[in-house]
Every structure is written in C-alpha cells, then in structure tokens.
Design a protein around this nucleic acid. Structure first.
Lengths: 126, 126
DNA sequence: ATTCACAGACTACACTTGTAGGATTACATT
DNA sequence: AATGTAATCCTACAAGTGTAGTCTGTGAAT
C-alpha cells in the first residue's frame, strides 16, 4: 500500500470506504454498495471512481470482463492524515486539546466512558 | 452569536481563530496576527476576511477610521460542526470508534494518558 | 497643497468538488 | 448476426477555494 499523497474528498471517502471494506469490486458492485447510503446517480459514482483512479487512490484490473477496482492507499494512513489535518485546523494541532475538549463536551454514555477508561488502562500497561 | 450555517474553509479558519482569540480587530491587525503563521499576501488575507463577512461569519464596524471585524459565529459551535462532519466522514459518525481508534493508534504520552483518565473520572462523577 | 502608501471595493483565475450527461463499445440474448 | 443494455470514456458546469491583482479614495507625511 502506497502512502497517501492525495486529498480524498468527502464524496470520494464514501467510495473508498466501500472498497476498504471489500475489494476488488466491479463498478456495478460499488454502485450497489454506495447506493444503500447515498442516492447518487450511477454516473456520479462512476465519476468518483475515475477520479480516485486518476488520483492514484484506486487501482484497476482491466483483465476482467468488467473492470475491478481496489484500494491503492491504506485506510489507516488516510484516517491518520485526515485526522492530522482536522486537528491542525481546529485544534492547532494539539491532540490533547482535542481529546480533552471532546471528553468534556460530547455526550458520551457511561458505558462508553468505561470502555475508554479500559482502553487507556491497556495503553498504560503496554 | 448566531448558529453556524456556513462552511468555513481551511484558510478561513485561520482568520477566524485570530478573531476568536481577540476581537474586534482591524484588517491590519488581523494581517499581522495571521502572518506569524502564514506567509500569505495581505491581499489574500483581505480576500478571506471579505469572504467571511459575506458568509456572515464576521461582522464589521464601519464607524471607525479603519473597519473593525469581529466574529458573528460561535467558536464552540464551529468546532462542533467541523468535528461532526469529520467524524461522519472518517468514522461513519461514531464518536466512540473515533476515540477508541485514537487512543489505540496515536502516540500519546503517559502524562497525557493520565490527564485523560482524570478527565474521564471527572465526567463519571458529574 | 502634493504625494505616497495603505484601506477598501471589485475582479481574476486555475483547481477541486459535487453532480451529472452524451457518445461509444462490448457482451448477452434472440 | 443484430440489437439492446450496461460499462467505459470523455465532457460539462456551477460553486467553492487558494491565492492574489487592479483601481480608487483618503489620511499622513513632506
């Protein structure tokens, strides 16, 4: 998997998430999967797929009766890059500020809090 | 403070953050503050300010020798909106997934972990 | 009073993004 | 083999963004 060097737009993320879930897939399959969340025209989804190929985020296998697409960039990398950008923009790059703000402000259930505490404990004992 | 109804772009966020920090400010002051982080032309910063005024994110006091600008939208609201969008895009809207992923993957110092644990504890005892 | 430099108004321009449409090709069915 | 339907390829187009530039007026300095 290549490092992410490209920006993936909001709409494109939806397509990428389908292929990170399962790949390779034909355009038809992708359209089917995306359509459960979005009411886009198949044409629109084709456009997004092609842009992602052009960007280097997707690869194509043309040796098939119908092209098959698969991710060329790693999901974890993309998430981290996206997160980094977001935290930079909103929290001046401070992860800590972000998490603190988050824990303070958001509605998190008791159970989730316990779960997070467990995760933190694990982290400590690594 | 109005509710945020407008999208604030990455570049615009930098201007907004200056004015959330201190307001009202003249364009010259804003340019000065922004220039410590960014090497934008003053013209560029003027453009951003004007777009923000047009979007309704900034207000202007024209009764001054030089216009003074101030935020019309609340920082907390903007952060929350931005965060919501981000989590939707990357984590399918699951705050929990996001925090969990974060705690697992990111390099967080021991001290930060303790700090977060403290925050969670506080949250429990609310 | 003249000039200079900056403030403010308006304009520019290429690139990305959301959202498709049209033309062409190729497989599948009659 | 012909035809229809779906898959590819290419094109479109307005709005938003990053990144400025021009023109015009006015206050400050000479």
């Amino acid at each position: 998997m290549k490092k992410v060097d490209c920006k993936i737009s909001d709409a494109e993320w939806i397509v990428m998430k389908v292929l990170w879930e399962e790949a390779p897939l034909t355009a038809a399959k992708i359209i089917e999967a995306v359509s459960s969340n979005k009411t886009w025209s198949p044409k629109t989804i084709h456009s997004l797929i092609n842009r992602l190929v052009k960007k280097g985020a997707l690869g194509v296998n043309k040796e098939m009766p119908h092209y098959e697409f698969y991710p060329l960039v790693d999901k974890k990398d993309c998430i981290q890059e996206e997160t980094r950008t977001f935290i930079q923009k909103v929290y001046d790059g401070s992860i800590h500020l972000m998490l603190a703000n988050f824990i303070k402000d958001e509605k998190i259930s008791e159970k989730e809090i316990e779960e997070l505490q467990r995760l933190l404990d694990e982290k400590v004992n690594e």
